[in-house]
Simulated assay, not measured.
Amino acid sequence: MFDHVVFGVSDYAASKAFYLAALAPLGIKLVAENELGIEMCGDDECSLCLFPTDEKPAHLHLAFRADNRAQVDAFYHAALAAGGIDHGAPGLRPKYSPNYYAAFVIAPDGHNVEVVCHKADG
């Protein structure tokens, strides 16, 4: 559905380090950086772009799709190691759907970053 998502961050260096580390388990990596900010992308060609701003951005909920539950777990641990704040450990969320396996972490600007796998375990 999306080609790219762009948003500002108040601490560019911290946010760049956080997103690159937290999303690495999903195969998302830096593809471009210039005076406008950074662009990160995975295999699906959809990109996430960050730019520095002096404004405190409104909080976002960003949800990334994982291929398997191990990627959800790896995201969670990488995000916490990169300075994220726990907002929901990896686990099933049956109130959303029977196989909704997700983890949630608060990023440097307070954004709620989620990684979800919709596939049954195994």
Rank of each mutant, 00 (worst) to 15 (best):
S47T: 15
V31W: 07
P25D: 06
V31Y: 07
L26N: 05
L50G: 06
E39N: 06
E39F: 07
D54N: 13
K56C: 03
E35I: 08
I38D: 01
C41T: 11
K29W: 03
L26G: 02
L23R: 02
A32C: 08
N34F: 04
E33W: 07
E39L: 05
E39H: 06
K56S: 11
L26M: 13
F51V: 05
C41N: 09
I28W: 01
A32V: 09
L36N: 13
C49V: 01
L48G: 01
L23M: 07
K29E: 14
P25V: 10
P57A: 09
A32P: 05
D43P: 04
G42W: 00
L50C: 05
K29C: 13
D44Y: 07
A24H: 09
A32M: 13
S47H: 02
L50A: 04
I28Y: 02
C49Y: 00
F51L: 08
E45H: 14
K56P: 00
P57F: 01
G42F: 02
P52A: 03
G27N: 10
A32L: 14
C49P: 00
F51D: 01
L23D: 01
H59L: 13
L50E: 00
G37H: 04
L30V: 09
K56A: 11
D44C: 08
L30T: 09
C46L: 10
T53F: 03
G27A: 12
E33G: 08
M40S: 05
T53R: 06
A24E: 13
E55P: 06
T53E: 09
I38E: 02
F51E: 04
E35K: 14
L48A: 07
E33S: 11
E39Q: 15
K56G: 02
A24G: 00
P52W: 00
G42A: 09
G37S: 09
P57S: 11
I28G: 01
L50V: 02
L36T: 11
G37A: 06
E39T: 13
P25C: 08
I38N: 01
A24M: 04
G37D: 02
E35P: 07
V31H: 08
M40G: 03
N34P: 10
F51N: 04
D43K: 13
P25A: 12
I38Q: 01
L48E: 02
L30N: 12
A32Y: 12
C46H: 11
L36H: 12
I28N: 02
L30Y: 11
L50T: 03
C41R: 15
P52Q: 05
N34W: 07
I38A: 04
C49Q: 13
A58F: 10
A24D: 07
L23K: 00
